[in-house]
Amino acid sequence: MRHIISLQLENESGALSRVAGLFSARGFNIESLTVAPTNDETLSRMTIVSIGDDNIIEQIVKQLDKLIDVVTVTNLTATEHIERELVLVKIDVDPSSQAEIDKHIDEYGGKIVDVSEDTYTVEVAGKSQRVNDFLEAIDALKILEVSRTGVTGVCQKREY
């Protein structure tokens, strides 16, 4: 099953490589990983999406917790949570396909963030599945470049 694991870690050099190294050393799978500072400048937030059975996810959570730089670990999938991912897609547009592409952008609440002579750059945000669906809706031949941020998320309760 797909799990979203959210970490707070000490904002120290090397903390990211400890987490990444743990996944490769123990053969855990990573679908996506995002990391950025938080409102507390001493902490970073990292969100990892991994796929594995319950035992593996339990080991991943325990092994992450064991890392000295990790302050908290939460398996968001186990609680009520919000997940979001953003994608930037560069799309080949010509007069014959433009209407169709506009329709999809509309349907997925996308935004055209840049327009050149014959391309759009479109931003779509939402659950990963929504991003997947959008990318599937667009004719594959028209997609020039895709850049996804990976999933980030928060737990819905006030505290966890």
């Binding site: 035992n55 339990e58 080991q59 325990k62 092994q63 917790d65 064991k66």
Partner: peptide, 11 residues
Amino acid sequence: IDPSSVGKTVA
């Protein structure tokens, strides 16, 4: 003492 030792190889 180490939670990650528990359930690692054997349930």
